[in-house]
């Protein structure tokens, strides 16, 4: 019923709000707080493995918030633990990327990182310029859609609850949750008179998939060159999800 859909949307939006690392207003106030030349230099003079470790820690923190977000999506906790993990293993990074668009300033192509806004040059010592450029391009494209916080919340839930992910035990059950979230997003877009966004959002899903496989590719490259860092210094949760 319509009331059920309203409740579902409200729960997802609440969960999104409560598990966001930063509020939109907070980010807006910091919009022009950029890293200066010395600070950029300090990031650039880090070794490849130092910078990877640093970013792995930041990414893992963001993922932990996504896990909390997932737990409050109606229906998620009814899934088996195996399926919850399967969804998070493939979807948490995608949700982090969707959320990253909230931390992005399109006016100067910077992203909020470590307390200030950073351009691609800050990530130079990761030695994976193509991934960084692709991630920034994705954030730019997401921002161009000018989604509301409610739309971002529902879209994030839809990215996560995907019955086509590998290793699911009860695909049917995931499918039912997925349909309800899809219904919720359609409902919100209809209410906002922005139904045309649905098609554009599904296009973003394909880009997310390619970004995540690029991340995995880079991680394999890194692990081969710096096995010790990847094995001993990366956060355990990062290894569980991506290694």
């Amino acid at each position: 019923s319509l009331r059920n859909i309203d409740e579902l949307c409200a729960s997802i939006v609440r969960s999104h709000r409560e598990t966001s690392q930063y509020r939109v207003e907070e980010l807006h106030a910091l919009r022009w707080k950029l890293f200066n030349r010395e600070e950029i230099q300090a990031y650039q003079s880090k070794s490849v493995d130092e910078m990877w470790q640093h970013c792995a820690i930041r990414l893992t923190e963001a993922v932990q918030y996504v896990v909390e977000f997932a737990k409050h999506i109606p229906g998620f906790r009814m899934l088996s633990q195996n399926d919850q993990i399967a969804l998070l293993k493939t979807g948490s990074m995608e949700v982090v990327l969707v959320r990253m668009s909230r931390l992005f300033n399109t006016e100067n192509n910077t992203v909020f990182f470590d307390g200030k806004f950073a351009g691609t040059e800050v990530f130079k010592s990761l030695a994976c310029g193509d991934l960084i450029t692709a991630v920034f391009d994705f954030a730019h494209g997401m921002c161009a859609l000018k989604l509301t916080e409610q739309q971002i919340a529902l879209f994030s839930a839809l990215v996560l609850i995907n019955a086509d992910r590998p290793c699911l035990e009860d695909k049917g059950r995931v499918q039912r949750v997925q349909r309800s979230v899809e219904f919720g997003l359609t409902h919100i877009l209809h209410r906002d008179n922005q139904e045309s966004l649905m098609h554009k959002l599904y296009q973003r899903v394909a880009v997310l998939r390619s970004l995540c496989s690029l991340h995995m590719e880079k991680l394999r490259w890194f692990s081969q060159r710096y096995p010790l860092t990847a094995h001993s210094l990366f956060p355990p949760l990062y290894k569980e999800l991506f290694a």
Partner: peptide, 16 residues
Amino acid sequence: KEKHKILHQLLQNSTS
């Protein structure tokens, strides 16, 4: 299960 120990813990944690 051992492979995803931390994820298990995070998911079982009822507080957020």
